[in-house]
């Protein structure tokens, strides 16, 4: 056997170990787009900030306006993520729905849904200051928890969200800025990094 064959064997081993334990179809481009949606949404809220009746009350017109933008961002991001990841999976000949994808999703959802529920409870009790830090913190924990099942770099993005969430908890009035930094800019940055490193091959 040639040296090249030994090297090929090692490459095969590494490739299969990765592919059987990690969900690798996550699309970098969808991260960029999700970041763009979030940035656009933040700017819309920012431009309309003078029209809001403060302090914010649950289900007041201002509240509904902000909530509907947040939900639109979430839904658009989810759809983009699923569609683009499906495409990426097709390109690499992998099925998007496999046991690892399931593990990835479950482990991502546990902190995320907990944080979402906690945020809703906070909104109901009118603790608006805590809503933004809670979403940032629990999203960060969700990323860290799910990073075991995909590329390890997702962990760094999670840690960044934790830092932003804690800073936001210290400066509660600036939720929109921290939100834009995290869900907007950090997503665009991370998505671009992933896109150029892995997807454009």
């Amino acid at each position: 056997m040639e040296n090249k064959d030994y090297l090929n064997q090692l490459n095969d081993i590494q490739h299969l170990m990765n592919r059987s334990t990690r969900f690798l179809s996550l699309s970098g481009l969808s991260g960029i787009l999700a970041g763009l949606y979030a940035t656009i949404g933040s700017f819309i809220i920012y431009w309309n900030r003078n029209t809001f009746e403060l302090p914010l009350k649950v289900f007041s017109p201002s509240f509904n306006f902000i909530l509907s933008i947040a939900i639109s961002i979430l839904v658009l991001s989810l759809i983009t993520g699923i569609v683009l990841s499906k495409q990426k999976a097709k390109k690499t000949g992998e099925k998007i729905w496999n046991p690892i994808a399931k593990q990835f999703l479950i482990n991502f959802s546990i902190p995320l849904l907990t944080g979402g529920a906690l945020a809703i409870i906070m909104i109901e009790r009118s603790y608006f200051d805590l809503v933004s830090p809670i979403t940032l913190l629990f999203y960060g924990l969700a990323l860290i928890n799910a990073s075991r099942y995909t590329l390890e770099t997702l962990r760094s993005l999670g840690i960044l969200f934790l830092i932003l969430g804690l800073l936001n908890a210290m400066y509660p009035g600036y939720g929109l800025y921290f939100w834009t930094l995290g869900f907007g800019f950090a997503h665009i940055g991370y998505g671009s990094y992933m896109y150029f490193k892995y997807d454009r091959k």
Partner: peptide, 13 residues
């Protein structure tokens, strides 16, 4: 190749 592949997968799963 296939036997090596099977073992690689079962080592980490």
């Amino acid at each position: 190749r296939v036997r090596l592949g099977i073992m690689s997968i079962l080592m980490v799963n």
